[in-house]
């Protein structure tokens, strides 16, 4: 019997599966935080989750609304200052993976969370980069979680807030950056990975029920499909139960 679930749940569960038990993960707020904690509560109980507020090896019982909720500090192994977090722990090369979201992404997994339109005369002013510009280059690899749509998956970014593989896919190496950059992009329809030659994010797995047509329809560039495309394993009962539990606890806690 198949379980019923939402595309958003499939996305979070597929993202959680990308994380390993021995990862040290710099966690972005929102969807990345849900995926990282789902991993911790299912297959990766020993994963080290780190938030930029300075909380190291935190085990929140409810998902934080902000990057610095007290829950993160109360359940952390230790909490360090923000300068120390960025200098010793992120720049120091301690993170195996950084987990990011974004407002806009291009085919080389560069992200924009800064501005739509001209920077000095913006059409839409977005929050900005926060920790992302340095997370993107100082973590050993980057996972990205984002729901698809033509306004989010764009052919050309108005602004590069954090570098994926660069505007042509070659800049990372040219700039002497040794880390891998985005190795996986998890969406509500499918999973992308960079092509080993071009670094273009390429569809390698399609979620059950989603189609190639839908992926093309919701992508601002013409997406490339890998020679062999897998079907993403559907969520199992435990994954759905744990995800829904933590989301219910979170909603109750933030409702006030």
């Amino acid at each position: 019997m198949s379980l019923s679930y939402k595309p958003n749940e499939m996305m979070t569960i597929a993202a959680a599966r990308a994380l390993r038990n021995d990862d040290v993960c710099f966690v972005g707020i929102g969807a990345p935080s849900a995926a990282c904690n789902l991993a911790r509560l299912t297959h990766a109980p020993q994963i080290t989750l780190i938030y930029e507020s300075g909380t190291i090896a935190t085990k929140p019982n409810v998902l934080p609304l902000s990057i610095g909720d007290g829950e993160l500090c109360d359940t952390a192994l230790t909490t360090v200052s923000v300068p120390e977090m960025f200098r010793y722990w992120l720049q120091g090369g301690r993170m195996t993976v950084g987990f990011l979201g974004g407002a806009q992404i291009d085919r080389f997994a560069n992200l924009n969370t800064t501005v739509v339109g001209d920077y000095h005369n913006p059409k839409v002013r977005l929050p900005g980069g926060g920790g992302a510009p340095e997370i993107a280059t100082n973590c050993r690899e980057i996972f990205i979680i984002m729901a698809m749509g033509k306004r989010a998956f764009v052919d050309k970014l108005p602004f590069i807030t954090s570098m994926g593989h660069g505007p042509t896919g070659r800049e990372r190496r040219a700039l002497g950056v040794a880390s891998k950059g985005p190795t996986r992009l998890i969406t509500d329809y499918c999973i992308f990975e960079p092509d080993p030659e071009t670094q273009e994010m390429t569809v390698v797995s399609i979620h059950p029920g989603a189609t190639r047509e839908e992926i093309i329809e919701n992508c601002g560039w013409t997406p490339t499909f890998a020679a062999s495309v897998a079907e993403t394993r559907a969520p199992d009962a435990l994954e759905l139960e744990v995800l829904r539990d933590i989301q219910a606890r979170t909603k109750a806690a933030h409702g006030g």
């Binding site: 954090s162 570098m163 800049e171």
Partner: peptide, 10 residues
Amino acid sequence: MLRGYIGVDL
């Protein structure tokens, strides 16, 4: 100084 702002528009 920092190892930062690499490959970005800021």
